[in-house]
Nucleic acid binder design. Structure first.
Lengths: 190, 190
DNA sequence: GTTTGTCAACCTACTAGTTGGTAGACTTCC
DNA sequence: GGAAGTCTACCAACTAGTAGGTTGACAAAC
């Protein structure tokens, strides 16, 4: 028997690689790490993902898809803009409580060392992310829920940056609550 | 003549290593990179810094010293709390315009992969940094320059996180002005 | 004032292990 | 039989780090 293969191997590879990137960064793990965790050989990994660059690209694509799906979930759920914003922040908090950084936050700090296709995907993620958040902010402003000056998109970029930074520091301090406090301030300031 | 050695070699090693960490992260460069940039052998680097962990630790120590020196400079210069805060933010903006990340911001994202002594130094840097900022914020609040709720130290932590995150994203977008806009919002909100 | 010894600062040459990646054989399922 | 997926067995390049030798500056001993 080569594999009882209960779960789809490529997906399991992505699951493990994702966790590794989120905890150690793109330069902080190797194919050998994935192989060990999955109990297969490196060669087998290369069969599914020919190069690390390709693996990384697919990783971001999948992450973005899941993330945007979650945002749709927020749109579908009820509540005013503030409630939605809180659910948005909650996504980050949950990732952090799983002892992970945001995948793209991590990759943003590895940015200069990434292969070009990955760079493009990282920016694409943040573009979509900020677009959605900007729309929510604008909605909230129109409804009188939020008060802020300037373009919503600019504020969105600022908030995303703040959340990523707050995650990074909270993780270094091993103190997820530190993220919550910072996020509370951000949301409260609107 | 063995050396025209105008500059102190250990310092030059630290200079180059610092730039490499700030641009590529601690796992994104090797002794070979420093050796090439400095035109010496790897063995020579190991003479001055026995291990990469030791090099990294010394790197943070020196960075913190320089940073705290700059904060003293702000204290010494005139102006109210807001003016001082702007000069504080300026430090980050200048680093970014040199195409670098904050050294410790970078190391915060590499955190899980760092040797323990480096982890301690990174946290020490942020502790000192936030202590100073908290004092400035408290000063500003007492003088009526700033308005904010809760402990100054908590706000300081939030601001430092936001600045680090804003830097990271601005660098990914190759757009230093993105940092300026985010920082402007942060300072303006006080 | 030359010999002798010490020292910092480098060098060449090497180690053991890791990196991403490949070739080709094998095995199982349709 | 052919495709899919896995394996063993490799490779060249790179990793941090080491062993041991060379160089020239300086200082004391003679």
């Amino acid at each position: 028997m080569p594999k009882p293969a209960p779960a789809d191997t490529p997906q399991r590879i992505l699951d493990i690689a994702e966790r590794l990137v989120q905890t150690r960064g793109f330069n902080g793990f190797s194919y050998a790490d994935i192989a060990e965790a999955l109990d297969v050989t490196k060669a087998s990994l290369h069969y599914h993902f020919p190069s690390k660059a390709e693996l990384g690209k697919r990783l971001i694509e999948r992450y973005e898809q899941t993330f945007l799906e979650a945002l749709k979930g927020i749109d579908a759920g009820g509540g005013d803009a503030r409630a939605r914003l809180k659910r948005y922040v909650r996504i980050y908090a949950d990732v952090l409580r799983d002892n992970r950084m945001c995948l793209c936050g991590m990759l943003a700090s590895d940015y200069t060392t990434l292969p070009t296709p990955m760079k493009e995907e990282v920016r694409h993620f943040f573009d979509r992310n900020e677009e959605w958040l900007a729309a929510l902010l604008e909605q909230g402003r129109k409804a009188g829920t939020f008060a802020f000056r300037g373009p919503a998109r600019e504020l969105a970029g600022s908030i995303v940056g703040s959340l990523e930074g707050a995650m990074m520091l909270a993780r270094s301090y091993g103190d997820p609550a530190r993220f919550d406090r910072a996020a509370e301030r951000l949301v409260g300031a609107l």
